[in-house]
Design a protein around this nucleic acid. Sequence first.
DNA 1: TATTGTTATACTCTATAACTATA
DNA 2: TATAGTTATAGAGTATAACAATA
Lengths: 149, 149
Amino acid sequence: MERRRVLEDDLGFLLTRASAMVVRSVNEALAPLGLRVRPYTVLSLACDEPSGVAQRRIAADMGLDPSQIVAIVDELENRNLVARTADPGDRRNKLVVATDEGRKLCDEARRLSEEVSDRHFAGVDPALLAEMRTVLGRMVFPESVNAAR
Amino acid sequence: MERRRVLEDDLGFLLTRASAMVVRSVNEALAPLGLRVRPYTVLSLACDEPSGVAQRRIAADMGLDPSQIVAIVDELENRNLVARTADPGDRRNKLVVATDEGRKLCDEARRLSEEVSDRHFAGVDPALLAEMRTVLGRMVFPESVNAAR
DNA sequence: TATTGTTATACTCTATAACTATA
DNA sequence: TATAGTTATAGAGTATAACAATA
């Protein structure tokens, strides 16, 4: 063989390639539901928080600029999957809350998305996968390293 | 805490977030060289193959469509970092070969890019990083699972 | 003065289809 | 007919700056 002498050991490159593969297949898997990865992620965050999530929070969790969340929430709201509700405590906030319809679709999407992940990581030692979750989780959410769960 | 109940365990999501972080900081690190991740990757592949790489090969290794390679090679060629040379064996192929200047810049870029990776994965057990490389490498290049190196 | 959501804009990346030249 | 590279185009994702409403 003796190709890819350097890139095959570059974790950044491998991460990029792997995530592109997963995103692609999740997008394909979610297409029948009319969802793509990013709207699904927003919907999922809304579903995880019964009282709703502020758009800033969504942006922070997804690593995006708040301005990029607007159109995604617009789309989900137009489809009646989430609703923007006023935060009584701080009227600058708009809390994004999932509707019943949104929750149903999210459950379905989650199932499909997990199926895709399982397929990609089939045959990998579950303990190793757990360690990868920990490493990547700490990298992505450094503030919650020792947070109680 | 008790947020992100589901996404924090979603390897696809973590992979996407982590790779976005790395790509962003590698792009920043390479900016002084006038490179971004993708041109750097193409240059790197060209440097790894003294006799040159076919554009199809580059596309396959990067998981892109061959049409997306054209503009990147154009740019590198305009900067005299690579040259397109005719493949004597099959004149349909254009082998992308790195120039001396390209090799010098690639070495520099590699150094900067490794620095970024080291920073992101500082404190992680090297053995675990090696296992992650193996898992992701198999996922990305399934054809070379048992390839001799 | 600072922060939340919003609008607007420019750029990069992704995905396809169709063309040409060689095989 | 099949394959390598190319062109063109549309859509999705990324990155900033600036604005109105609220704190």
